[in-house]
Simulated assay, not measured.
Amino acid sequence: MSNQISAPIIVTGAAGFIGFHVARNLLDLGYQVIGIDNMNTYYDVGLKEARLAQLTGRNGFGFHRVDIGDKEAMADIFESIRPTHVAHLAAQPGVRYSLENPHAYVDSNVTGFLNVLEGCRACDVKHLAYASSSSVYGNSPDVPYSTDQNVDNPISLYAATKKSNELMAHAYSHIWNIPVTGLRFFTVYGPWGRPDMAVYLFTKAIRNGDPIKVFNNGDLRRDFTYIDDIANGVVKVLLSPPASDTGDADGKARQRVAPNYRLYNIGNSEPADLMQMIETLESLTGGEAVKEFLPMQPGDVYETFADTSALERDFGFKAHTPLNEGLAAFVAWYDAYHSSRT
């Protein structure tokens, strides 16, 4: 595919779950990609290395093993690459881990994001697309969640850092006229997924005959969104910077909002009960989960449900993969990946 972007696109978190898929999609489309990742030990580094091996050696791909919290290293990369487009997908993820290691979240999600913003400012980038999270909605009872809602009441430090990202991005967009788009992801799952997430944890436990922890006694709902839908949406948005004359549906100027700043939900818009997800995994694996029912965990939310009408309106994009199809693809990948490593 021919394209009009001559400089490489920087993808932070390129060895991570979403970053890997976005980098691969961009390479498939013929773009040059420079991946950045610190390959930390939050989860199995071998999985990160296996993802990276899928990218390394491909035409147009380069990689820097760098922590985004390293101010000087990040400045050097931006100065040498001079990117026009940046997909910022690196972060310290996970709600529950933020209770154990809060400093990791500020170091990566706040300081690291500042370094990315500074790099974008220095290089006068044409578009920064960055990852936010449905966690910013906290325990709001107003579903489906809309980006017009107030999100000033996070219930985890992880969510607070993601809300901070949105505020920082808006400030930089306003002050430096940087085109920026934030994407609030909703419960992403699929092949090459993170081992700390429920779909991976439950599949592994069922395969090994181990118990699974079912929080809030199974009374939870999640807007499970398949990774291919997420990656396709990120790429579509990344390659379409906001215009400086952005207006609302009535054509009126958006007061109090930087003209080059946008924020969208990206999710499946079809929440499923946690128990439905477990039952589907049992059917796909042919096993029965040993369930350990537990109370709600601190920082967890009862339900996530994305209103994606704005993304559909502005990009004609909608996630479409049904949960049973996405879980089937994940289980097939899980079995193939783990059998190849034994």
Rank of each mutant, 00 (worst) to 15 (best):
N3A: 06
I5T: 14
T12V: 11
A15W: 07
V22C: 07
L27D: 02
D28C: 01
Y31C: 08
Y31N: 04
I34H: 15
M39N: 13
N40I: 08
L47G: 04
A50Y: 12
A50G: 04
R51W: 12
R51G: 05
L52P: 09
F61Y: 13
H64G: 08
V66W: 04
D67Q: 13
D70G: 04
F78I: 01
I81Y: 00
A87I: 05
A91E: 12
A91R: 04
Q92E: 14
R96A: 12
H103T: 14
N109V: 13
G112V: 13
L117Y: 10
K126Y: 06
K126D: 02
G138S: 00
P141W: 09
Y145G: 00
S146H: 11
T147L: 07
Q149D: 10
P154Q: 06
P154T: 00
S156P: 05
L157C: 06
Y158K: 01
A159I: 08
T161E: 01
E166S: 01
A169G: 12
I175M: 15
N177G: 14
N177K: 15
F185I: 03
T187H: 14
G190R: 12
W192R: 11
P195G: 00
L201Q: 12
T203W: 11
T203Y: 09
K204T: 11
K204N: 14
A205V: 06
G209A: 09
I212Y: 02
K213L: 15
V214I: 10
G218Y: 03
L220I: 04
F224S: 13
Y226V: 14
D229K: 01
I230L: 04
G233Q: 01
L238C: 05
P241S: 01
A243D: 07
T246E: 09
G247W: 04
A253Q: 12
A258L: 05
P259D: 00
Y261S: 07
L263M: 10
Y264G: 05
S269W: 02
E270G: 13
M275G: 00
Q276M: 09
Q276V: 09
I278R: 01
E279A: 15
E279S: 15
T280F: 11
L281Y: 05
E282H: 10
V290G: 05
D300G: 10
E303L: 08
E303M: 11
A306V: 00
A306M: 05
D307S: 06
D314F: 07
D314G: 01
F315T: 09
F317M: 05
K318A: 00
P322E: 06
E325S: 12
L327F: 06
